[in-house]
Design a protein around this nucleic acid. Structure first.
Lengths: 174, 174
DNA sequence: CTTTATTTTCAGTAATTATTGAAAGTTTGA
DNA sequence: TCAAACTTTCAATAATTACTGAAAATAAAG
């Protein structure tokens, strides 16, 4: 097995790039993921200025995405006495980070669909073609049941603590 | 609680719309999700023509996304004797469907990132600033460890059968 | 209150991603 | 071998999404 030596800046760039790509494939703004990645591997909180120059992005872009990261609870503001600038740092606990991301996406994106599905499940659907009606109803029911169960599981994850997750869930993997 | 009566076409449109929106929020082409939704609630296999007119999309768009759905293993071609057209139907088992989606996304998107992370973990990283170096290494290690565990869990899900999933995993939810 | 440092907003623009439609390709049957 | 029926491709275009940069807003210091 070969062990390579690479420059820190190069390794960091690779990591940020990969994290940004991953994010954008999953519907998260590339810049947002990249800022998050940058903060995850920085020893100290960074100012907007620093983030701007490290990632070559504009002030507006930096500001909006830092704000979004704070909305998600993934990044916190840090104020320093005698300094008017704001500094930002990412929570480094990945379990907590994942928990927050999952919770937020569930709330914003999954919950509305679950609502619609249960709505469609309770509504009386009218139509002339019986085969179509039956297929629609049973299709929606199947999806609704599965999604409901998956959602319960996700909820369990979101509400559990790290200890439970690692001990109870991961022993299933063995 | 009010129970409403709605027309089938209206309910179907809502469902397709919601499924398309959900998909696009998670990095899946809207049309692809919509075709999938349409097929999920159709009693029989549909031709490209039918899909085109139901969703108001062009032939090229329909063809490319049907093909993508088949690549993902979510939709199958159905040939009818004495008919040159191809018909398409979606697998209706949601557990199987979810399993395929997760497996495919893991393969395409997660696996490369895992590779990079383990690469970064084994590489010797050089740099002058010790604090930066340490933060990078420990950050990458934390992410790598977590992601590795999550990946094991996902792998378990992907390789398990439906029975295991419902019995073993869902009793945790209780 | 005024000046200065900093953050926020947002209209305009750039970049990316999705869609169309027509032409090229393929398959089938006569 | 040809024509008809159908599928695939892809350059052009449309639609969406992200980013910029400068002006407006805010906050702190003098």
């Amino acid at each position: 097995m070969y062990v390579c030596t690479v420059k820190l800046e190069e390794a960091k760039a690779k990591f940020i790039e990969a994290w940004g790509t991953l994010g954008s494939q999953w519907g998260i703004n590339r810049t947002m993921s990249q800022i998050h990645a940058l903060l995850l591997v920085s020893p100290e909180a960074l100012s907007t200025e620093t983030i701007m120059e490290q990632l070559n992005i504009s002030r507006g872009n930096a500001n909006m995405n830092i704000r979004a990261l704070m909305d998600w609870g993934l990044v916190n503001k840090e104020l320093r006495p005698g300094d008017r600038k704001e500094y930002f740092k990412a929570g480094k606990d990945m379990w907590e980070t994942a928990r927050k991301i999952v919770a937020e996406r569930r709330r914003r994106e999954i919950a509305p669909v679950l609502d619609l599905l249960s709505q469609l499940n309770t509504d009386k659907i009218s139509g002339d073609n019986q085969a179509e009606l039956d297929a629609f109803k049973s299709g929606v029911k199947e999806i609704s049941d599965f999604t409901g169960k998956a959602n319960d599981l996700v909820e369990k994850f979101v509400k559990s603590d790290q200890n439970w997750f690692y001990k109870t869930l991961l022993k299933l993997v063995k």
